[in-house]
Computed example of a mutant assay.
Amino acid sequence: MAEIKESTIFVDLLRCTGCWTCALSCMTGNNLKDGQYFVAVRTNGSGEGIDRPSGTWPDLRMSWMPIYSKHCVKCADRTAEGRAPYCVGMCPNKALSWGEEVEGKIEACRERGSRIFQLPRWENSREDVIYASADREII
């Protein structure tokens, strides 16, 4: 596990509902072109189209995972002023954390039995994003 820095973003996957508010607020706040994303939300389901669950009725499963590209600037102008990045500040479900609250959120997720992890290098994503998943064992 990498060192937790002031700029670390923490993603609590139990709270993420796949609404894409993080991606859209980032795109708008950073004046990106339509379809250009520094944050994209992956649907974890059957892999057969967007928002399609895996499993068979009545045992269906689906979850979402914000993926931060290496192009993400973490809203450097905002964070320099002590304000949260657009993605964190606009998340309606409080799935994203940044700054001083990250350590406390990680500890709370560990206490509930969540696995704390980072994406592997082959994902080509930012290294300073940490995730908590409720559907996995503690590492």
Rank of each mutant, 00 (worst) to 15 (best):
M1K: 07
E3Y: 00
I4F: 00
I4H: 00
E6K: 13
T8Y: 02
I9S: 04
F10V: 03
F10H: 04
V11T: 01
V11C: 10
V11D: 05
L13Q: 01
R15L: 08
T17V: 12
G18S: 06
C19Q: 00
W20H: 02
T21L: 05
T21H: 03
L24P: 06
L24W: 06
M27E: 12
T28Q: 10
L32D: 10
K33E: 14
D34S: 10
G35Q: 09
G35R: 11
F38T: 02
F38C: 02
A40I: 01
A40H: 04
T43S: 14
N44C: 14
G45Q: 08
G45H: 05
G47S: 09
E48C: 06
E48D: 11
E48R: 14
G49A: 07
I50M: 12
I50E: 15
D51N: 14
R52K: 15
P53D: 13
S54Q: 07
G55D: 14
G55E: 13
L60S: 12
R61T: 15
S63D: 15
M65Q: 15
P66C: 12
S69T: 15
H71W: 09
H71Y: 12
H71T: 05
V73I: 14
V73P: 01
K74C: 03
C75V: 11
A76P: 06
R78D: 00
T79L: 06
A80I: 02
A80T: 01
R83D: 08
P85W: 14
P85T: 15
C87A: 15
C87H: 10
G89L: 06
M90D: 13
C91S: 10
P92F: 01
K94A: 15
K94G: 10
K94H: 12
K94C: 07
A95W: 04
L96I: 06
L96H: 04
L96C: 10
S97F: 11
S97M: 06
W98F: 14
W98Q: 05
E100H: 06
E101W: 01
E103L: 03
E107N: 05
E107S: 07
C109K: 09
R112F: 00
G113E: 07
I116L: 15
L119T: 09
L119D: 05
W122T: 00
W122V: 05
E123K: 06
S125D: 03
V129K: 00
I130K: 05
Y131H: 08
A132H: 05
D135S: 09
D135M: 09
E137A: 14
I139A: 13
